[in-house]
């Protein structure tokens, strides 16, 4: 089932009733089972985009289609992994994974079984009885993955899920994520501002411009997994993205300069 993002537009209200565009004319399609990375300057609205795709926020214009179904509110078909792990601290790991099944009335036996399978997928089957405070940040994000996967979504949206992890853990988590993805073949949209991460993970990399965010560049990464982080092919793609981002940053600076100018005029 393809995920189609059609002409998405979102503005937010600034002070004095002024509307500022954050996302403009964004359209793209993610094929079933594809791993797409979204990258862009920080604060460009990547999270807003992901929240709209999930149905947590409504766009001002445009729509999101999963297959034939328009997404207007959160649905179980589209899972979400937040930047900070969303484990309920009062539940043990296994009961966190069971949560999505429990609230929809799956019988106890069955949900325990499914939860264990999901934990096994992220290789945490031995940590079921731990409380979230007792496990590390990387493990928490793995549990968050199991929580999302256990309800069998078609799409997994990930919003910089590894950003607060240290470098080595992050590399390890990326590999772990790819393993899970290869086993489950979910469609993944992965937001990051880390170029190396995007290049290591994605089949396709969508680069956003700075605000208002539009699609500035789309790159296909036709390198099979497992990828070598230091290979020349990966490096050349990295370089292309880095150049793009540098150019965007430059543009922002100029635009900001212009705004200051306008501001000064209004004071006169």
């Amino acid at each position: 089932m393809d995920l189609k993002i059609i002409d998405l537009h979102k503005a937010f209200s600034a002070s004095e009733g002024e509307r500022i565009d954050t996302i403009m004319n964004v359209s793209f399609t993610v094929g079933e089972g594809k791993f797409v990375c979204v990258i862009g300057p920080s604060g460009c609205g990547k999270t807003t985009l992901l929240r709209m795709i999930s149905g947590l926020e409504r766009p001002d214009r445009g729509k999101i289609l999963l297959g034939m179904k328009e997404i207007t509110e959160p649905v179980r078909e589209i899972g979400y992994i937040f930047q900070e792990p969303t484990l309920l601290p009062w539940r043990t790991v296994i009961r966190n994974v069971e949560f999505g099944l429990e609230i929809t009335g799956v019988p106890k036996e069955q949900r325990r079984q499914k939860a264990l399978a999901a934990l096994e997928l992220v290789e945490l089957q031995d940590f079921g009885d731990f409380y979230p405070k007792e496990i590390s940040g990387g493990m928490k994000q793995k549990v968050a993955m199991a929580m999302a996967l256990v309800v069998e979504p078609k799409v997994l949206l990930m919003d910089e899920p590894f950003v607060s992890l240290d470098c080595q853990t992050r590399n390890y988590m990326q590999t772990a994520l790819l393993q899970v993805w290869e086993k489950t073949k979910k469609t993944v949209i992965f937001v990051t501002h880390n170029v190396e991460e995007a290049v290591f993970l994605g089949d396709e990399i969508i680069c956003f411009t700075s605000r208002p965010a539009e699609i500035g560049k789309v790159l296909a990464v036709d390198i099979p997994h497992p990828r070598d982080r230091t290979s020349p092919e990966l490096n050349s793609i990295r370089k292309e993205i880095l150049l793009f981002l540098a150019k965007e940053r430059e543009k922002t600076r100029n635009v900001n300069g212009m705004f200051t100018h306008v501001h000064n005029l209004s004071e006169v």
């Binding site: 947590l56 649905v75 929580m147």
Partner: peptide, 21 residues
């Protein structure tokens, strides 16, 4: 944490489950 609430809604929690669990 607002994320707990959002993540529960995405996982399919209706008002009853959201309040109780």
């Amino acid at each position: 944490n607002k994320r707990f609430i959002e993540s529960s809604i995405i996982l399919g929690a209706k008002k009853g489950a959201l309040f109780m669990k």
